[in-house]
Amino acid sequence: MARTRKGRSWAQWRDWSVEKFWALLIFLFVVFPIFWIALTAFKETRDVYTTKVWVPLTLDNFITIFTPPFNYGKLVLNSFLISTITVAIAIPLGLMAAYVFARYEFRGSQILMVGVLVTQFIPPLVVAIPFYTLFRSLGVTETYLPLVAVYLSIVLPYSVWMLKGFVDALPIEVEEAASVDGCNEFQTLRHITFPMMLPGVITALVFSFIMCWNEFTYALILTGEETRTLQLGLLATVGVRGVLWELMAATGMVVMIPMFILSFTIRKYFVEGLTMGAVK
């Protein structure tokens, strides 16, 4: 009797530790790279080129990237403004289109929807080549126009699809009730549908913002000296002696921490958000 109980608890203990071992491994796999970059960002230069963990920490690297000659504040501002302008255009327009696609069937609506979906699979360079030459000849390379335009080509189709998923999930009866009560179509949209869609809209907003903020290919090709984004700041940490890793890491922190906060706010909708939009 005692032996079986002991046997069982040993088996339980073994199962428990196997489970926790794998969980720990996943934890390390996911978190360790982030931890290491974060640690490097706060290291003094001489400790960066070692694998030491217990070292004095400093804010010097952040001070360096935000002061001349780096002045990354400007890049943060560019990234923020370009992403914000894009999202501010894409989400309202995307929402309007998504609503129509979700609620009405008309001739060609299926084809249009699939058309919107497949635009997401166009390789960036197919878009970048003509836009590069076009914007060069228009002389607008030092404005936000080029990046906002190409980011709309990513974000708008994505948000149409994603928001359509959220509209589909809303019961149509609520809208019917509103129209029975005397709301016209636009009043129903404004007072009933859109407020109910708020979680979906916020999810689309956050994802779209992250996409713009993290985008690299177009930024590399289509920005001028004054419109460089933060992602390109990573490139500029490459000095004559190779990459200045402590500055790369500090820039990396500025790149990723705001996106972590944004992702965290929509954690409940994260998977839905990605799969519904079929994703860029």
């Binding site: 996911v30 978190v31 903020w213 993290n214 992602q231 990573l234 996106m259 944004l262 965290f264 954690r267």
Partner: peptide, 12 residues
């Protein structure tokens, strides 16, 4: 925690 790596930019 699983949502965080995806929010790190590919360049980074």
């Amino acid at each position: 925690l699983l949502i965080f790596p995806f929010a790190v930019s590919p360049a980074l």
